[in-house]
Every structure is written in structure tokens, then in C-alpha cells.
């Protein structure tokens, strides 16, 4: 009897699901998404690179760049924790699905939280 009652209620109520690509997903405030650098404050201490469990971060001290392989990052926010200058932050939204592995490169001299996108050819081995 319980299921019959539930079925009748469901028949006359709105769908529980949302039409995802059209309607944006409601992500909570603390959602772990993308990692971003503020290159104005970065001192290239390499702590984020050393502590990254999936080796997604590559710090180039000579070239003045921080790059992160998006598809490798597992959003553990360990880099945010260890940063002594607190110049790394995590934003709630996810990056969009891509066909080729994507690398976000942060170069010194860029504006706050600004980055450029590079793609890795899948034929070459990832770092």
C-alpha cells in the first residue's frame, strides 16, 4: 500500500530532478572545484608542488610560472593549506569538460587569478 500512495503523490508532483545542462547545478559554497594562483604574492617556495598527491602542480622558478594539469587535480585542497603566503585559493565551480588534457598556466606579471590555457596532446606522454 505504501508504494501505491507514493506513486500517486509522485504522479501529481513536480519532477525531483533538474534539467542539468540548461539549469546550472546548485553547488554549495564550500564545494571544491578549481585551484587558482595569485601570482602577485607567489614566492615560488615549491611547497604546493611537493605536497600535491597526484603531481598535478609544476612550479618553474626560473620561468616564473605555476602550472596545473586540470585532469590530474583531485581537489583535495592540500596546496591551499600549505601555501605560506595564502596566494592559492579554491573556487567552487568545476572547469568545463574537455577533449584534450588541459593545463592552466599562471605566469608572473599576470593579473590576480588570471591564467592561460594550454592543451596537452594525448599522443605525448604526460609529465
Amino acid at each position: 500500500m505504501g508504494m501505491m500512495r507514493r506513486s500517486i503523490i509522485n504522479l501529481f508532483s513536480r519532477p525531483y530532478t533538474s534539467k542539468y545542462p540548461k539549469v546550472k547545478a546548485q553547488l554549495p559554497e564550500g564545494n571544491r572545484g578549481r585551484v587558482e594562483w595569485n601570482m602577485e604574492d607567489c614566492i615560488f617556495c615549491m611547497l604546493c608542488q611537493k605536497n600535491c598527491p597526484t603531481v598535478a602542480i609544476a612550479t618553474d622558478k626560473a620561468g616564473g610560472t605555476q602550472s596545473i594539469t586540470r585532469n590530474r587535480c583531485l581537489a583535495c585542497s592540500r596546496c591551499v593549506e600549505v601555501c605560506p603566503k595564502k596566494c592559492i585559493r579554491m573556487v567552487p565551480e568545476y572547469s568545463e569538460p574537455v577533449l584534450l588534457p588541459e593545463v592552466h598556466v599562471y605566469v608572473i606579471g599576470m593579473k590576480k587569478w588570471d591564467y592561460k590555457v594550454e592543451r596537452i596532446d594525448t599522443k605525448t606522454r604526460w609529465r
Binding site: 525531483y16 554549495p28 564550500g30 564545494n31 583531485l74 581537489a75
Partner: peptide, 18 residues
């Protein structure tokens, strides 16, 4: 789904809480 949302709000992730 309700509990997945609770997990997401507390930990930031839905499956692997880290």
C-alpha cells in the same frame, strides 16, 4: 541524494571527501 548533498556541503566533495 539528500545525504550526498550533506557530504558535499561539509567536505566539498560528493564521493571522495578528502
Amino acid at each position: 541524494e539528500e545525504f550526498m548533498r550533506v557530504a558535499n556541503e561539509v567536505s566539498g566533495n560528493r564521493v571522495h571527501y578528502c
